[in-house]
Structures are given as C-alpha cells and as structure tokens.
C-alpha cells in the first residue's frame, strides 16, 4: 500500500512566507488595511503589493478601495475560496510535521 503523499495537498500559491502571513492575518480578521498588513508582516510596500496581487489573481483575497478623508484606505479580506484553500494547506502542513 502506498501512503498518500501529503505534499500533493500543499498549495503552491502559499509557498512564500509573505503570502502565508497575509492569509494568516486575513483568516482571523474580517478585513485589514495595507499599512496594518505591512506592519504585521514586516515587508516593503512593493513586496507586499506584488504578493497581494498574486493572491488576488488566484481569487483568494478581495480588495476594497475606500477613503478615510482624502487618504486612500484599501481593505483586504479573504474570500470563501481563499479560506478553504488556506485551511487545506494548513492541514497538509500539519500532516507533514506529524509524519516527519
């Protein structure tokens, strides 16, 4: 009998510390703005923006542009699909650790 390889369940999109960070934060908050995310994950603007874009393109997070006074305030939140894939990814990570 061949054991199912848990690596199959690991999601390639989450294979980055920054994307993991973004998703982790969005799992426990309904929405977060750009600056709070940046502070939380400790990355540069450009770096964060490119990873957000990747996640947005895969349909895992949604972007909501708004204003506070004149300043732009962009809010990010996880989509249903994003939450589901991230949970699966975490499960896979957990399984791998247990098997190691």
């Amino acid at each position: 009998m061949v054991m199912k390889n848990p690596i199959e369940n690991l999601n390639k999109i989450f294979d980055s510390r920054i994307r993991l960070g973004i998703m982790s934060a969005l799992m426990v908050n309904t929405s977060i703005n750009f600056n709070d995310l940046k502070q939380l994950i400790n990355v540069t603007d450009g770096n964060l923006a490119s990873h957000i874009k990747a996640l947005e393109e895969s349909g895992y997070i949604k972007v909501q542009k708004g204003f506070i006074g004149r300043k732009t305030n962009t809010l990010y939140s996880a989509t249903k699909a994003g939450e589901k894939s991230f949970r699966l990814h975490l499960d896979a990570l957990e399984k791998m650790i247990r098997n190691l």
């Binding site: 510390r17 960070g21 982790s24 934060a25 975490l90 957990e94």
Partner: peptide, 9 residues
C-alpha cells in the same frame, strides 16, 4: 512556518 502563522494570527 507554522509558528509564523500562529504568531501573525
């Protein structure tokens, strides 16, 4: 990785 996730959450 897991502890990163937990910490950020």
């Amino acid at each position: 990785e897991l502890s990163d996730i937990k910490q950020i959450m």
